[in-house]
Design a protein around this nucleic acid. Sequence first.
DNA 1: CGGGCTTTTGAGCCAAATCAAAAATAGTGG
DNA 2: CCACTATTTTTGATTTGGCTCAAAAGCCCG
Lengths: 248, 248
Amino acid sequence: MSIDCESEAVTNPLLRKLEHGAHLSPADRALVEALTSEVTEVPGDYDLVREGQTPPLVHVVLAGFACRYKSLPDGGRQIMAWLVPGDFCDLHVAVLGEMDHSIATLTASRISTLPRNGLEEITTRHPGLTRAFWWATLVDEAVLREWLVNMGRRPGDQRVAHLLCEVLARLKAVGLAEDGEIDFPLTQIDLADTVGLSAVHVNRIIQQLREEELIVWRSGRLRVLDVPRLQDMAGFDAGYLHLRPQGR
Amino acid sequence: MSIDCESEAVTNPLLRKLEHGAHLSPADRALVEALTSEVTEVPGDYDLVREGQTPPLVHVVLAGFACRYKSLPDGGRQIMAWLVPGDFCDLHVAVLGEMDHSIATLTASRISTLPRNGLEEITTRHPGLTRAFWWATLVDEAVLREWLVNMGRRPGDQRVAHLLCEVLARLKAVGLAEDGEIDFPLTQIDLADTVGLSAVHVNRIIQQLREEELIVWRSGRLRVLDVPRLQDMAGFDAGYLHLRPQGR
DNA sequence: CGGGCTTTTGAGCCAAATCAAAAATAGTGG
DNA sequence: CCACTATTTTTGATTTGGCTCAAAAGCCCG
C-alpha cells in the first residue's frame, strides 16, 4: 500500500497533464495546486464511486492506477478506462447527474478529492483552466475511441501491445516514465478485463511479448525494451493522445 | 438521395436532443434554430471531415446517418460512432486542434454547417446552451463506453441487438421513431464495421434475429417487433443515454 | 509455514473468421 | 421500361483465434 513517492514527479500530475492542453497562467497553476491539496490514500481494488450514485466530490488520481468499469450480469466486468496520475475520475457528474458506471482503484492510490463548488467557480471565472479541463475530457473521449478500434479490429497480441504503448505514453506525459520503464502493478486479470480477452489468453500473449524481447514485466514494473518496435507491431500512433511533443 | 422529409419531426432535431440535457430559454431555442439554418444535402458514403484536418466549420446531422471511423492498415475500418439527427460531428476540433479520426455519411444526409465563431459566441454568452452542448459531448462519451462493453464482453448476437436497441432509443429521443420502427438504410457491412464482426457473421446474426421474430428489416426500414424482448436479450439499459423519460 | 491470489500449462471446444460463389437488389444509362 | 452493372445479401465449407475447464506452480503476506 505504499505508493512509491520517489518516482512521483516534483510537479503535480494534474498540472503536468493540463499543460499539454492549454497554456496556464501562474494564477491558474496556483489554483490547480490548491485544488489538489485534499488528498486520500486508498487501497487497491476499492470502489471510489459506484454506478447510480451522484458523488458529491470530484476525484483526481495523483498516484496509482484506477479504472472505470461496468459489471455484467454474467459476473464479468469490462474496464472502459484506465485512470492514471493527472486524470479526472468524475468531472462529468455535475452535468450528467448520475454515474452510468463505477470507478475503482486497481492498485493502492493517492486520490485527490475536490469540492464541486470549487470546480464550478473555476468554470465561471477562469477560462484558461476551463479550457484545459475541456481538453482533458476530449482526450479521454479520443482514448475511448482508440480503445474501440483496438477491441474491434486488432488481434489479441496487437491489442495488448497497443495498450502498453498507450500507458507508457500517458505516464511519460506526466513525468512518470523513464526510458521506456514504468511502475505497473496491475494483474494480468486487470489487463484481460480491459482488452476484452480471457486472462488465460492474455497470459499467453504476455509470454509471447516476452519471448520476442519486447517487454520485461515483473514485480510491478514494466520495461519496454524496444519502444518503436512495440509501437510498430501494435499499430500505435500517439496522435490521438493530443500531447505536446515533450512530456518534460 | 432524397431524405424522407415526411418522417422528420417538425422540430429541429438538434434542439430536440438538447432539450434532453438542459432547460433552454426561448432565446436559446431561437439561437439553435438560427445556427442550423445553413444546410447542405450530402450523398451517402461521403467524407465530411478527414483525419488530420482541422475543419473550419462544425457539422450537425439533421437527417440521415453519418459515422466516425478510422481506417486500418489492412484496409478495414472501425466505425466508432453513429451520428444521427441532432448529433454534432466535430464540436471538439476547436479544442483538440486536429481530427484524430474521419467522419463520413453512411446514407444520404442533410447536414448543417455552423461557423465556428458563432459557436464561440455561444460558449461565452449563453451559459444554458453551453451546458447543453457540454451535456451532448458527455453523452457521446457515455455511448462510447457502452460500445466498449458491447465489443469487449457481449457475444455477436447480443452485440448487434444492443446496437439496434440503442439506435432505436436515440432516434426516438429526437422524434424519429414511431412504435419501434425507424428509417434504417444502412448496409450489413456498415453494421459489421461498427460492431467489429465480419459481414458474413453479421448476416447470420440478422437472420437469427428475424427467425426469432425480434426484428423485421427490409428496404431501409427497421421494425423491432418486441422491444422489451430485444432489450432483454441484448442486456440493454438506456440509462447511459441520459435521456429524459419521454422523447416526446 | 500455510492460505489465498496470481500466473502458467495443457487439452478440447466453439464462436467467429476466411474463402468462395450464388442469389438477390439496387442503380444507371439507353 | 428494360438490359447491364455493381453492390449487397445469402449460403456453404473450412479454418482459427480465443474460450473454457482444470489443475499445477509460483508468489505474496500475515
